[in-house]
Structure formats: C-alpha cells, structure tokens
Nucleic acid binder design. Structure first.
Lengths: 241, 241
DNA sequence: CGTCGGCTTGAGGGAAATCAAACGATGTGG
DNA sequence: CCACATCGTTTGATTTCCCTCAAGCCGACG
C-alpha cells in the first residue's frame, strides 16, 4: 500500500525499493546463530558477510587506543548490518551481539552480483544507505548540541519508535540489553551520569528503566524533553516488510 | 593504476567506480554559480539537484528550533552534495555556500535514470554513500568521545588531508572560510572556547589560524593530539579523478 | 571616521567527569 | 542450597572542562 505521506520520493521508487527488498530477502540463504557477546565483525579485518537480524540485537562500535569506546549503532530485528562496509577492503568497526542472535546472511560478493543483475536491489541498497546516513546525521546533532537529558530521552524514544514499528513493544515497554555503561558509550556520557539522568527521568514520570526493562510512561513528556531534536526522526526507515 | 593498498575491496570494484565517475561527470550538464552565503538547499523543501563542487566550499547543517546549530559536513571542491537526500521526499538539512561557488549539477530524476541504465553509476553512488557514512561515523566518535583539542586538531588535519589530496594546499596552508562560531557549530563547542583552544594549539606550535588562514606547522604534533582518533581517517574517499 | 561583525580576553558558573565506596543482583562451585 | 565472587548499579564528594556573560579590541567596509 503506497502510503500517502511516504518518506520516499516517488511511487516508482517505493516500488523498486520493495521489489529489491524481496529479491534480497530471497537471496539471503543462510541463517546463523550467535551467542550473547559474540563478536561477529572484528575491526581491521575483512568482512565477508552482510547480516539481517531476525531476532536479537547487535551493536556496532569503535574503540580508541586508550580504551574510549563509541557505540555507533544499535541494530534491532529487521535491521541490516554491514551494508556500509561492503565496498571497503576492511571494517573499521567492531560488531558485537548484545543478545543471542539469529541472522540471515549473504556474502558480499554475492550481494554485489545480485545488485548488478537486479537494479531494484541497487535501489534498495542506495535507499538503505541514505537512510542510515540520515540517522547518523541525527545523532551527530544530538552529540554535538544536546544535553544529557535530551539525548537520553531521544534515544529511548527512537528505540521505542523503531521497536513499535516492528511489533516489539509490549505496552510501551521493552527489554534494553545494554548496561548503563554501554548506554553511555552510545550517547556520549559516563555510566554514572546515565544513572543520574535516568533517575531524573523516572522522577518526572517520563520513563523508567529497572532491571534492563524500559517503560515509556509518558511519551509526550519525553518528546517535550527531546525537543526540538525529536522532529528529526520520524522518517527514518521506510517499513521493511 | 589500481593501487596496492587501495581502500576499495576488489579491483573490479575500483574499475566500476572509476567508470561510474566518468559517466556521471559526462552527464552533469549544467554549471551553476552561487554567491557567498547563498542557500542552495532549504530544510523541509524538495531538493531537485545534486551538486558537485568545482570551486568553493559549502556547509550542510541542521538548525534546531531554539537556534542551536550543527554543521554536519563541509564540502570542498570535488565533493558531491545532496546524494544522500536523493531517495527522500524532502531534505532535513540546509546547505549554504561558505564562499562563492561554481558547481556542476544534475537533476535527481536524471541521475536515477542514469543509474538504472549504467550499473557503474550505481556502484559509484553506493561507494560514495558508504564513504560518507564512514566519515560521519568518524565524527560521531569525535563528538562522543574526544576533547576540544582532539576534535579541533582532527578537523584541521582532516581538512588538510582532503585539500592536499586535491592540490589545494599551499605549503601546508589553506584558507578556511568559517568564522570561529561556525567552527564551533561543526565540532560541537562554543566560539569562545574554539578561540581559546586555537590559541593553545598555536602556543604549542602545532598549527595557527590568523585572518581565516590555517597553517599546519607541525602535523606530527597535530596527529599526536588527535590521536588515536586520527587513525580513523586515512581511507576516507577514494581519489576522485 | 564611525559602525559593525568577528575576534580576544577575563571572571564566574554549571554540567558532566572522576574518584571512591557501598549496595544489589546474578551466577558458580562447594 | 548456601557462600562467595563478580559484575553492574547506586550514591556521595570533588574536580574539570567547557559554557555563559560581559567588555574591549581589531579589522573590514561604507
């Protein structure tokens, strides 16, 4: 159903994107299973596979020589992992499983061939990369300009939206498989400070997180905190299925 | 000449990338001229054109409702502008000229058609988007983890490298058409603090900036400051011509 | 020559980091 | 099943980096 306010530009583009997704899905033969904390891409190494998550979460990160760590992306079921590394000789990122994971995989070489044969797949890849770029730009705004509260609220909202779009929210709640340290690595602050901000958020009744379970009690309040940063997200990805 | 340590994965990919670049260059018919401060893309509007800069610099930015501003990208001659917006209905970014600009342009619809006809062009776009994503990831690490000095040093080095690669460095010096306020908007700090850090950098003899002219006196020192952040950049873009 | 935008410099304050310690949960081996 | 070790969370005290506010300065330009 070609939605009225679809974020994609033209109807034929929407169509090609969908067809490309289907073709790609059919080409992704293998399923792989990984344990929690499994490292599925090592920095500096060649990356042969492109993944699409069926269940479980993974994080993509960079670690600096002195130990500082920045999580660049959190992928949830439905997301692709590794598209942007395809053209390059080796990955700069590390990718680790945050939970047990099952993923469809395809070899990069196969994916290139498929894209050469089927232009819809190329379009799918172009759209996917553009959307990911837009997401990263959004986070750049957050890290560059926003306060701790704004960033945390925006992160919770963003995850809520994405999970909701895939039917993975249970009455505004979801399991967030990240330590507070990792949340800090994602939004650029200390674990200690994450903890304090989290407490402020729950104090105001906007959202709580206990035992790794996030509850979005008052999304309007969260949006108000994350404002005006929050306008940026709505488009994000076009629906995947 | 397929370099030994080319950042691109396979020789045939390098070849397709180059052919795609040539095809695209030939298809970019029109030249446009813009004055300093001209706004060539307005946020929220449809963006019909994709640009490739011949001379001059442009900045891509997001402005929040309360006035905070984040510059997401600084494009120099040779760079493309607007690729990542192609699939979407409208742009979230604003794009403004930092100097007088001359740019080759192509309509997005034409570019889509070209990519459909010539798979090398698709590859060129895929590689370009992937490289840009990698750059944004690098900046995310900087904004999330690095100190003011590290970020500023990294920015100067990055610009130096990119300009050098295009023959736009004059003995380690270049004109940087940004106010200190804008530098701050780019690397996420106040103009006042930019000024102080700049002074520290020139005090240590690493680099100076006077009257908008940046001189990279001691790149080793800059690299040392920007370390280990700085390892991330070398790949960046494959050479454009 | 005066005005204006941008740069420079100082003083003070605030957000988040750091350091440190206690507490709680989860899991393991005896 | 308890004892203990480990990892993560929570809380407090202190420090630091960077922001804010404010004023003076300098160069560009009308």
């Amino acid at each position: 159903m070609p939605a009225v306010n679809h974020p994609l530009r033209r109807p034929e583009l929407v169509r090609a994107f969908r067809l490309g997704e289907i073709a790609l899905r059919q080409a992704m033969g293998g399923i792989r299973y990984y344990g929690r904390h499994a490292l599925i891409v090592r920095p500096g190494e060649q990356q042969e596979l492109v993944f699409r998550l069926r269940t479980g979460w993974v994080g993509r990160a960079r670690t600096l020589a002195d130990g500082r760590n920045q999580i660049l992306n959190i992928a949830i079921p439905g997301d692709f992992v590794g598209l942007h590394t395809m053209p390059f000789d080796r990955s700069l990122d590390s990718v680790a499983c945050l939970t047990r994971v099952t993923a469809m995989v395809i070899h990069q070489s196969q994916l290139w061939e498929l894209a050469a044969r089927d232009h819809n797949v190329s379009i799918f890849l172009l759209v996917g990369l553009s959307a990911e770029l837009r997401r990263q730009d959004n986070w750049l705004v957050g890290l560059g300009q926003c306060t701790a509260e704004e960033r945390l609220a925006a992160m919770l909202l963003d995850l809520g939206e994405r999970l909701g779009g895939r039917g993975l929210l249970v009455r505004g709640a979801f399991r967030l498989p990240l330590t507070q340290q990792q949340i800090g690595d994602y939004i650029g602050m200390t674990a200690v400070h994450i903890n304090r901000v989290l407490k402020r958020l729950s104090g105001s009744g906007a959202a709580t997180m206990r035992r790794r379970v996030v509850r979005l009690h008052d999304r309007a309040a969260l949006k108000h905190i994350a404002e005006p940063f929050d306008d940026l997200w709505p488009d994000a990805l076009p629906p995947y299925e």
